[in-house]
């Protein structure tokens, strides 16, 4: 998977959102709220191809969390990103 062209992570007063910018995302009129760990993952995978396993490993590197919990969180997050259309297979 990878992040679609034109989606940018922005920080506002300590909170994170993803917005569509540029011609590629001119019709994306939403903002996607990100918590701190989602924003961390987003930064790590920006400009790269990634798999769900990559994201699980990134969470395990950064947070005190079980592999099962990390995998469940990643599944939920990636499903949201796919539904909202900010990443593509």
């Amino acid at each position: 998977m990878k992040i679609k062209d034109g989606f940018i992570l922005r920080s506002i007063c300590g909170e994170y959102i993803v917005v569509g910018e540029g011609l590629a995302q001119v019709n994306f009129n939403k903002m996607l709220s990100m918590n701190e760990s989602a924003a961390y993952l987003w930064k790590e995978i920006t400009g790269k191809e990634f798999t769900r396993e990559d994201l699980v490993q990134l969470l395990l590197d950064q947070y005190e969390v079980s592999k099962e919990q990390a995998a469940a969180d990643v599944d939920k997050l990636v499903d949201t990103w796919l539904t909202e259309g900010v990443v593509e297979q």
């Binding site: 034109g6 940018i8 922005r10 910018e21 540029g22 011609l23 001119v26």
Partner: peptide
């Protein structure tokens, strides 16, 4: 004008 990526940083 959202198509202008170059300007988005400034507006943000």
């Amino acid at each position: 004008f959202r198509p202008f990526k170059e300007l988005a940083d400034g507006w943000h």
